[in-house]
């Protein structure tokens, strides 16, 4: 994994190299998309690059990821995504039909998300200088008046909600890439979340934090939030929605489902008084049908995420660093 794993190492790259070099308050917020004001409109603006292998997997492909990734980054600021750009970097020799299929996926995903691909670009690199297909997308969308969604807004007492099962996407990718089957097939949950977020904002405008726990999983997202807001986050192990297949695969591979990547899932942090309304709105939406509360923000251990185990102990859930190496001696 190293610096791309979405854990502590890529966090350090961003924090120590990029943020200082580009220094401005928007980046310093370390959110997935920036909210800017342009011509009187509040616009969310985001970009993301996609280097996934394999290019196609059960439940989706790189084309779906490229649209949904940026759409979701925008949605996590509470924006309604509108326009996307799309840049392809193709490795010489990649099959035309592969590119064609990806383009079709892209188009279909854009339509499903209700966004328009407004501009694009294609570059070809020499054979051996790429991994088949890389895609970069950028997007913009409008943010409603009164919406203020930032990790810093997580407050003691707030409730942590996840929109559905954890770890599904990462295990699906792994089982295809490695040709490993963990019993029943796991299908990626890759999906655009802007519709779900819209429904949530219709119910409660004052959502404090939204995050899509992609690379590095739920653990990484929550650690970022806990550090940004200076609160502790305490999860309840028995409340985590982890499908049996994911649990089995993780226990076999020695992975923690909290560190496994998700697509099409979001974490929401809301005031306790708003929790029921938000949950109801989520459960009424197809992508939030299994939404559930997994924890709370606490005053103890600020900046740290913990899980309360079934035996009553409290385990620290760190940001993963590189690969998950054993610590047992």
């Amino acid at each position: 994994m190293g610096h791309g794993g979405g854990g502590q190492m890529s966090g350090e790259l961003i924090e120590h190299l990029f943020v200082p070099a580009f220094s401005n308050p928007l980046l310093a917020g370390l959110t997935d998309s920036a909210v800017v004001t342009l011509g009187g409109a509040r616009i969310a603006f985001s970009t993301d690059s996609f280097v996934v292998q394999p290019l196609f997997f059960p439940g989706g492909g790189i084309g779906d990821l490229a649209v949904n990734g940026t759409v979701n980054d925008l949605a996590m600021s509470g924006a309604q995504p509108a326009y996307l750009s799309c840049g392809f970097i193709l490795e010489e020799g990649v099959a035309l039909e592969t590119v064609g299929r990806i383009a079709e996926d892209l188009g279909a995903a854009a339509e499903r998300a209700g966004v328009t691909i407004a501009t694009g670009d294609t570059k070809v690199v020499d054979s051996g200088h790429g991994d088949g297909v890389y895609i970069n997308t950028a997007g913009i969308g409008l943010v409603r008046e009164g919406v203020d969604i930032r990790p810093q807004r997580a407050a003691v007492g707030d409730v942590v909600i996840v929109s559905g099962a954890i770890g599904v996407h990462g295990i699906a990718i792994m089982s295809v890439r490695e040709g490993i089957s963990f019993g029943t097939e796991v299908v990626s949950d890759c999906a655009p979340l802007n519709g779900l977020v819209g429904a949530m904002l219709d119910a409660v405008l004052d959502i404090h934090v939204l995050r899509d726990p992609t690379r590095g999983g739920v653990a990484t997202s929550l650690n970022e939030i806990a550090k940004a807001a200076g609160v502790g986050i305490e999860l309840v192990e028995s409340d985590l929605p982890i499908p049996e297949t994911v649990a089995n695969a993780c226990s076999f591979l020695g992975l923690d489902p909290l560190y496994v990547a998700n697509e099409g899932k979001l974490l929401a942090i809301v005031a306790p008084s708003d929790a029921d309304a938000v949950l109801a709105a989520m459960r009424a939406h197809p992508l939030g049908a299994d939404a559930t509360v997994i924890g709370t923000c606490v005053a103890t251990h600020p900046g740290m995420v913990t899980t309360h185990t079934t035996f009553g102990a409290t385990r620290v859930v760190d940001t993963p660093i590189g690969e998950q190496l054993p610590r047992i001696c």
């Binding site: 490695e178 040709g179 490993i180 019993g183 591979l253 690969e323 190496l325």
Partner: peptide
């Protein structure tokens, strides 16, 4: 049999192996 098959693939593919 399932564990053997998984382990064999895992070792062959060097998946989550240190």
């Amino acid at each position: 049999a399932e564990e053997l098959a998984l382990l064999k693939t895992q070792l062959n593919r060097n998946l989550a192996c240190t």
